[in-house]
């Protein structure tokens, strides 16, 4: 029980320090889990992170579940996961509660109109960053463009694309199209 509480608290701390998630999280994980507590090694952490990236869901959550379960089994995985989402729950509920009261002020509307432009640029930058790793050859490029066009112009569920592309990845690999 004590260990579960500790897992919860350490991952809540990591949740507070993680701004934006993803790669920003690695240095904090290293410091909290490897250097300060020796709960895991750098190599193991990179393994967890790599698997966390190529399994569904939020990478930070996947990594937390992994570390928690390696420390204390299934309850450990759950405690670490609840820990990492706890700060988000509190902080976002407070901010969302405040913002809804001020959403109709002209100044707030103008501020968010400016922020939306910034969100476009941030999403664009995220796409460029992912692109470098995700599109290694022409077959992947074709897949990416097909998904972009179909999803931009037709109202189709993203689930459909995910299932088709997983199948396409396996077929392309078997047919030898991959890598060309």
């Amino acid at each position: 029980m004590k260990q579960l509480a500790k897992l919860f608290l350490v991952f809540a701390k990591i949740g507070v320090m993680t701004f934006g998630g993803g790669y920003a999280m690695i240095p904090f994980l290293e410091r909290e889990l490897v250097e300060k507590r020796s709960w895991t090694t750098s190599e193991e952490l990179m393994d967890y992170y790599a698997v966390g990236q190529c399994t569904p869901g939020v990478i930070a959550v996947n990594t937390a579940t992994f570390v928690g379960q390696s420390m204390a089994g299934v309850p450990g995985g759950i405690a670490a996961t609840l820990g990492i989402v706890f700060p988000s729950l509190v902080i976002i509920c407070v901010i969302a509660g405040i913002l809804t009261n001020f959403a109709d002020l002209p100044a707030v509307k103008s501020a968010f109109a400016g922020i939306r432009v910034c969100v476009c640029v941030l999403i664009f930058n995220a796409v460029v960053k992912l692109w470098k790793k995700a599109v290694p050859d022409k077959a992947a490029l074709a897949l990416c463009l097909a998904v972009f066009v179909l999803s931009a112009f037709f109202n189709l569920s993203p689930v459909l694309f995910v299932l088709c592309c997983a199948a396409a990845g396996i077929l392309f690999t078997q047919w030898g199209v991959r890598g060309r």
């Binding site: 190529c54 939306r116 969100v119 476009c120 999403i123 664009f124 995220a126 796409v127 992912l130 692109w131 790793k133 995700a134 599109v135 992947a140 490029l141 897949l143 990416c144 463009l145 097909a146 998904v147 972009f148 999803s151 931009a152 993203p158 694309f161 995910v162 088709c164 592309c165 997983a166 199948a167 396409a168 990845g169 396996i170 392309f172 690999t173 078997q174 991959r178």
Partner: peptide
């Protein structure tokens, strides 16, 4: 590995299309 070879470009395409909405 093969499934993720297909899933990664899918993810990029979907995010880019969502960006277009913004």
């Amino acid at each position: 590995d093969a499934a993720f070879y297909g899933l990664r470009p899918c993810s990029v395409g979907l995010i880019a299309a969502a960006g277009l909405l913004v």
